[in-house]
Write a protein that binds this DNA or RNA. Sequence first.
RNA 1: GCCCUGGUAGUAUAGUCCGGCCUAGUAUAUUCGGCUGUCGCCCGAUUGACCCGGGUUCAAAUCCCGGCCAGGGCGCCA
Length: 437
Amino acid sequence: MFLLKRTHLTRELKTGEATISGWVNVVRDLGNVKFLIVRDSTGIAQVTIKKGVVDEVILKIAESLNPWDVIAIQGEVVERKNAPQGREIIPSKIEILSKAETPLPIDVSGKIDSNLDTRLDWRVLDLRRPETAAIFKIQAKMVEGIEECLRRDGYLQVFTPCLMGSASESGAEVFPVVYFDREAFLRQDPQLHRQLLIIAGFDKVFDLGPNWRAEPSHTPRHLCEHRACAVEFGFMNDETDMMRVEESVLIAALQKIKEECKDELDLLGKEISIPKTPFPELQFPKIYDVLKEFGKNVEFGEDYDRESEVILWKYVKEKFGSDFFFVNRFPFKVKPFYVMRIDEEPQWARSVDLIYKGLELSSGGQREHRYDKIVEQMREKEMTIEVMDWFTKFFKYGAPPHGGFCLGIERFIMQLLDISNVREAALFPRAPERLLP
RNA sequence: GCCCUGGUAGUAUAGUCCGGCCUAGUAUAUUCGGCUGUCGCCCGAUUGACCCGGGUUCAAAUCCCGGCCAGGGCGCCA
């Protein structure tokens, strides 16, 4: 179909004949000499078009080029000291593969920063900005690091359902969907099926996938659709086991990014430091006292609020020098029915959040595996026992002590790279007012 | 869902408080012209905007009301 076939990526260019293809990034037309900056996924290359040196036809085509036209260039790569990469291409053939309209609806060149909302309207073009693309290259390595760590430690990757027949996982609102002649729901968390897999005899599992929340949250840290890495394992002694697993997963992710995303981190002006383990742990009810020291009154037995998270971060940062910390033993009344309580102090649950730079990154802990206790806790929460029978009935047939956590991918990237809005950490974010593109 | 702030060319902003000197300024992009070593090329010219609806007024980008959308905060949560 096309005359020119790509032989080299821009990163691989060496002296000699080559054909590259990609987008025209810049046309710098000085009259009788024109410089094209051509970009592909690996980098950029300069094409130099001089009158009297190249064919008149090429000169004509070059004059007609717009930024972001897709072209193929055949020519000779030569060393050149004052070229951007120390080399340039002297073209012998040029072919336009696709034209781009001008002007582009957002500035991709870095001269003018568009607002996030405008960028998201034109997300595909926005992703051409190297800074935007870097976020997702780092995200990919983060997930890779997480997966490698879990597989190495014997965790099995599983896929649990996204369509749920009942909607009682947590307090968050669910999205209903039409399911033939019935109503179903999009999962808020792959929680319950992971627990069932532990009962099934899968000792260690993890599920990487999307979750949905139908909350009309107008904040910079909520999405209606987000991805999470959900880990669950059996035969735990108590919830501290879970914290150690979570730490190792986070460290592995950071290590991976530090090792393999040097260019992207440089581009974003970020450095990764590997935190010390174990992460500091704060517990209810002592947390009320800590907060009080900072002039924050939270009533005994109640959940803390957003401001408290930030206060506790500053406290931990000062006292332990850590950006990560766990919060353990939340009040049972603010947690779902399936959490395990302290038997002697049933007001408190073995329920653990991880806070990173003052923002909740994950929720988890030890689950209640004793059937009678689960039913009792459901009664306390005034839930209909029958509705959850599809889940609870399996606990009658041998459920080991178990637990896990669910780690938000976008939030992790957001906090790591100090991104101010989580929508920037999702390729095509879903928010209450945004469902396209 | 609630509170606060905002919505001006393709993009990003000035002007709004205190209505008229706004024929709406600037940067960048677009279009055209010039330039043989650019690298945010440069130089000259050109095109292009007051969110939608209603109200007050001789006069509204500017004041008031409603809607939609956005940014920040809260709640919910990953």
